[in-house]
Design a binder for these strands. Structure first.
Lengths: 368, 368
DNA sequence: TTGTATGCGTTATCAA
DNA sequence: TTGATAACGCATACAA
């Protein structure tokens, strides 16, 4: 901790650089160009052309030239303080953005975020608050730092509601990646799990399955309940039994989804099983293992599907029926929404459609 | 408690955007507490306790109380402007930071970068070489954008030297991830390929191998030549032949490293082969394929090693001897160095040690 | 022990 | 057309 503030010498009021300064200011550009600082601001922000501010071509050229030579870059803090915009978009995640365990990574989203941000002319500020305890990283003020940017994208489901609400109330543009209706006024972009889940059930029903069971974990996240809703919707739409027996909910799929149980289901007339997707993929893993252990052939005797994608480590296995979440598109969409919010345009939270995946884990039910 | 007391006592009378004036400032806290704004700043920043600034307990209490009632949150932009620093670290990569193809991703480095940045109290700004945003994104001024941060980390080997040199000359803190001695004065953090490569050879020599051949691509990047140096060092240290015959250099491993050639080497007494690691992993792939095609058993008749890690798509194959590059640590180390640079502390570019990996691709040579 | 005055780099408003 | 000048909200030497 050897800092001691680097007691920056304050040279009275000289606009001239005292020796070697790493960040040239507008004043210096002005001096080099032989104009006033205000003119530099005008030219550099392009506000002269946008509004009807007339600036001589000559001056323009000189200023741009000077800025180029000096390598001038506007100070984001100053810019923002003066009530202008930064061209900076914040990204705040409540776990590390780059976790060691890639399975929980936001990487796929970031691909889209980065691309769209570039298109919209924004750079990204990654707020590191959540991971390790930096300066005032954790704690009350953590979220406040994002105000440096023009707006901020939030990833992860554990965003503290009150702090977020405060930002929104203060008129700070905020977009949450993932549906979020608990926090008043927070805009969000989510995947349409309901429709996607319904589509999977529909596909199974059309293949001829009459009894289908959903295996889900004991989690009340929107992502989970949405899937269940879609699943039940699909059943009802197909005129299939959608009672409590259609959903098997367990806190520990690994021990509770047994071969015996699967066999019982099968003997009872169940010909298709659907597992929800979660971080760990526990439901899907358990289901696969149990079906295997029960000696049931898939997609011969039973058909399987997952409401999402299988976990990455099963990527070499045969592709199961299910749907793909367009994560990159979600990221891009979120940036677009945020950008509109910043521009003060009217906006609306949106759902992005997932794409159905036929896979090879399902077929028509065996005819008795 | 939103207090819309529009008639605040404010000097001047400029029309301020409504959304902006919704947050209380230190001045208002001061007024409510009956003290000066400066005192509020002192108390709220905890600078009174850190340094020996004496503030009466009474005042302290009043200020905190007032801040609490008003719901005061500091403006990061203002704070950073006044402090003459951003607490922003730039990360500049010459490809997209989040490429679609994860194989070329900087992810492993970023893990360490993010963590250490958080520890040091920095947030991250991600610049992309290809970004369409900003004034002059591509081309000459591209690198200048990074001046927005307090310092910048560069990833990838294609950083244009003159531009980097310019930044350094201007006193802008810069750290390059990867050894870089072509550009005057640029600090860097690199992996110690020389020692690591030497260790691999030593291990092979200790296992009893007397003739070892290195297969490398036709690339003069430091990462490549370092490996060769280490390899030759290792040979000499073990008293083994380290002439030109010990290194096979080819622009096209795939067609030049044939089964016939490998068999010839083997009949000539070569019992161990070492491939350098590159982006594509071409040398290692070719070597494996050729040995396989030659019908030589590994690790029975020949031993293999790679100077680094095999490409990600071979991750399910048996683990070859070689070494692991501690990418996360490299990232963290780079941030630490950059942070020191910014603080004006004396610094030095560093090499980080790689960790030896025994693997299963080598054993003692077959005794004739 | 606390208050005063000023600067940080921009943007924005006028007057010249 | 351009140039002073005043905020923006906070931090800090220096005076009281």
């Amino acid at each position: 901790m050897a800092k001691e503030g680097a007691g920056r010498a304050r040279p009275g009021r000289s606009p001239v650089p005292a020796g070697r300064r790493s960040r040239p200011r507008q004043a210096e550009v002005a001096q080099l160009a032989g104009v006033s600082q205000a003119t530099v601001s005008l030219v550099l922000s392009g506000r002269d052309e946008a509004t009807a501010r007339p600036i001589s071509e000559e001056t323009r050229r000189k200023v741009l030239q000077a800025a180029q030579t000096l390598g001038y870059v506007p100070d984001p803090a100053a810019r923002r303080l003066a009530a202008a915009r930064n061209n900076l978009l914040g990204v705040f995640s409540f776990t590390a953005t780059f976790p060691t365990d890639v399975r929980h990574s936001y990487y796929p989203f970031l691909v889209g975020v980065e691309q769209e941000a570039a298109v919209q002319g924004y750079d990204l500020v990654l707020f590191t608050g959540s991971s390790a305890g930096g300066a005032d990283a954790a704690g009350a003020g953590a979220l406040n730092r994002v105000r440096l940017a023009d707006g901020c994208l939030f990833l992860g489901r554990h965003a503290p509601s009150p702090e977020l609400a405060r930002l929104v109330r203060d008129g700070f543009p905020v977009v949450h990646l993932g549906r979020r209706e608990d926090t008043e006024g927070v805009a969000w972009v989510g995947a349409d799990y309901i429709s996607a889940s319904r589509d999977v059930v529909t596909a199974l029903a059309e293949a001829g399955h009459r009894r289908i069971v959903l295996v889900r974990e004991d989690d009340d996240a929107p992502a989970s309940t949405d899937r269940e809703h879609g699943f039940l919707d699909g059943l009802r739409a197909a005129g299939l039994p959608a009672g409590p027996a259609a959903v098997f909910r367990t806190a520990d799929p690994h021990t509770e989804v047994t071969a015996a149980r699967v066999r019982a289901w099968h003997e009872d007339g169940v010909t298709a099983f659907v597992a929800e997707e979660t971080d760990t993929g526990a439901a899907w893993r358990a289901l696969r293992a149990a079906v295997d252990a029960a000696g049931l052939r898939c997609p011969g005797e039973v058909s399987l599907a997952v409401l999402g994608s299988p976990p990455p480590d099963l990527v070499n296995e045969p592709v199961p029926m299910g749907f793909d979440i367009p994560r990159a598109r979600l990221g891009a969409e979120a940036v677009r929404l945020l950008s509109a919010l910043i521009a003060g345009e009217p906006t609306e939270s949106t759902l992005v459609a997932c794409t159905f995946r036929a896979g090879v884990s399902s077929g028509p039910p065996a005819t008795a």
